[in-house]
Design a protein around this nucleic acid. Sequence first.
DNA 1: ACCTGAACACCGTTCAAGT
DNA 2: ACCTGAACACCGTTCAAGT
Lengths: 229, 229
Amino acid sequence: MPEQAINADEVVGAALDLLDDVGLHGFTMRALAQRLGTYPATIYWHVGSRGEVLSAASARVLDSVFADLPDPTSTPWDAWLDAFARGYRRQMQSHPAIAAWGVTHFEARVPAPDDLEIIVGVFARAGFHGEALALAYNMFLGSLIGWVGVELIADDPELGSDPEQMEGSVRALDADDYPTIVANLDHLANHAIAFRWQGGIANPLDAAFDFAVATWIAGLRAQLASRSG
Amino acid sequence: MPEQAINADEVVGAALDLLDDVGLHGFTMRALAQRLGTYPATIYWHVGSRGEVLSAASARVLDSVFADLPDPTSTPWDAWLDAFARGYRRQMQSHPAIAAWGVTHFEARVPAPDDLEIIVGVFARAGFHGEALALAYNMFLGSLIGWVGVELIADDPELGSDPEQMEGSVRALDADDYPTIVANLDHLANHAIAFRWQGGIANPLDAAFDFAVATWIAGLRAQLASRSG
DNA sequence: ACCTGAACACCGTTCAAGT
DNA sequence: ACCTGAACACCGTTCAAGT
């Protein structure tokens, strides 16, 4: 039995390395093949198309989120959701290209039923059942995945948008025309969606993420109270 | 003064039509030129690169969201945010390709300060000021844009993922291994993130969106109460 | 079973040249 | 100022051919 020169796991690992190095835009079947010292067709043999390689890389990152989480049965539901949200964001910060691809490709593959059972189980123990469970699950997962995807926009969009010019246009807003923006500009400039001139890796919105997670959980608590009341 | 054969507005309009017809993947500078009866270089002359065309199309759709909203000064903040969320989602449902592109390209361009002043003003009248205003703004906008982006995944990912096979794997989950999922399967199957085999256009998650918006607003209400208490 | 090498049918973008 | 036509440097994917 001679060792194989290459296998699917190696392809996925190299894909993640390449994504981290060059981003989604530079992630090319040809570049991936070159990094593995082989030919594009070899990748098709072991894993499949570009989309399938990205899907496999995304699955590996998502799985690693669950490696570091507290025990879901002995942890209060709100503390567990908080830890899950932070773990998810941390992994996406390590692989921003996966975050960008994932937001729009979180398809219906039941990629890891074990992980999904854990999440669904936490909502059940929180007191959500039947339709309310599905609603709470969708609210939290959609908000989390989506929010992090929005936060982690690339520093360099493909546009030629100049950060300095952008900063200038934010700071030049007239107080007569835009009173509320100008009154709160110190807290908005480079710290709020659509007011930023840096991406979410160079400029993470840490306080905003803390507030968002707390607000999602506070909202769920209010929903539980109104349903049992 | 002879009429020009073409102008930037026409290019953006044709771009939106093309996006609606063929999706983000089929949106090609060459296809756009052909639709306009001209050459790719003409698009570069009037609007710019592919990214700039998408950015302009996205800006036009976003602007149209604000055309149909209630008066922000005479509407309670929670009712206004609710209407805004619904208007945003409706426009994205009309242009799903823009939703997909927008989630990861909501850059820092202050594209429409008038619209942003309205949103920020609503949070100010709700009682958020200074840093709390920026936090609430980021929480709501990031959740909304992100959630809708996750919902509106394309029915056909580039993967060869077979919907029928996907439905089969969801329905085949074993009750011993996945008790909570199976117990709630009727409410999860094709109605929850990662349990779907259709995209958000063919299969909109209406009830989940209603619940998400209500939960975001309930969470903001709780944050207001805890800060003033 | 696994890999090579080349080919096919595309891309986005640039640019000299026209009017 | 605006458009043409062609070219450059790439893509993803397929496929016959090798071992």
